[in-house]
Design a protein around this nucleic acid. Structure first.
Lengths: 110, 110
DNA sequence: AATCTTTATCGTAATATTGCAATATAATTA
DNA sequence: TAATTATATTGCAATATTACGATAAAGATT
C-alpha cells in the first residue's frame, strides 16, 4: 500500500488531480507566477528567483512540465520555460464550472 | 530535508498550494464531485461511493476539511459533509485571473 | 444496559515527495 | 580544445502521503 489507486477513478478526476497536485507546492505556484510576471520567457533566472538550490528547482520544473503546466525549449546553452496555457485553461474551466453549479444551488447545506 | 520550505513563499502562494494539494488526489476530487452531485448533503455515503476503505475515506475527508474545501456537521449519529464554497471560489478567482492575464499576453513564448 | 451504526483515530507498511551535494551533460566562449 | 556556463541527473536522507486493519468513541436502537 501507499500508492494512489488511480485506476478506480475517472480520467477527468485523475487529470484534475494531476494538475492540482503539480500546483500543490508553493515553489511551483511561485514558478508559475514568476513566468506570468516576466513578459519574456525566462530560463534559469527561476533558480535565482527561488530560495531553493538549483537541483531542487530543476526537479520542480520537471514536475510542472510533466503535468503539462509549462513547456521548455532549448535556447542555445539555456532552456527557455514558459507557461502552457492549455493546462491552466482546463483548470480555469473546471473551477468556473463548479462555482457556477454551486451558485445555482445556493447552499442548502446540512 | 524533506519538508516543504513554506516560510520562503508568500501567504497567497502557500494558500493556493494548500488548496491545490488538497485536490491533488483523485479520491478527493471524486469526493468534491460527489458532494456537488447529490443535492442534499451526504455523510458516509461517500464511503460507499468510493473504492476505498472507510478509514482511508475518513482521512481524505479530514484533509479536505483541513484545507477548508468542505465542512462537516454532526447530524445525530452521522456527520454531514458539504462543500465550502469560499475555498472553491478562491481557486476559481485565482485561475480566472491567470487565464485573463495570459489571454492579454497572447503567448510570445520562447 | 447491551448492541448496533457511524465515524474517527491509531499503528504500521508501502510508497512518494522534498531538498541538496555531487556529478553528469551539453552548448559557449576563451 | 580547455575552461566556463546552464541545466539535468544521481544518490541519499528526512519527511509526507496513501492505504487499511484494528480499535475507539459516540449517538441510536433494541
Amino acid at each position: 500500500m501507499g500508492a494512489t489507486k488511480t485506476e478506480h477513478f475517472t480520467d477527468n478526476q485523475n487529470a484534475i488531480a494531476t494538475l492540482a497536485k503539480a500546483l500543490g507546492h508553493p515553489a511551483r505556484v511561485a514558478i508559475i507566477e514568476y513566468l506570468m510576471k516576466v513578459d519574456t520567457c525566462i530560463c534559469g533566472d527561476i533558480v535565482n528567483e527561488l530560495p531553493l538550490a538549483q537541483p531542487t528547482v530543476s526537479q520542480h520544473l520537471k514536475e510542472l512540465k510533466n503535468a503539462g503546466l509549462i513547456e521548455g525549449s532549448i535556447e542555445g546553452n539555456a532552456i527557455c520555460y514558459c507557461i502552457d496555457e492549455k493546462a491552466l485553461t482546463k483548470l480555469q474551466n473546471y473551477f468556473v464550472n463548479i462555482s457556477d453549479r454551486l451558485e445555482k444551488k445556493k447552499s442548502n447545506c446540512c
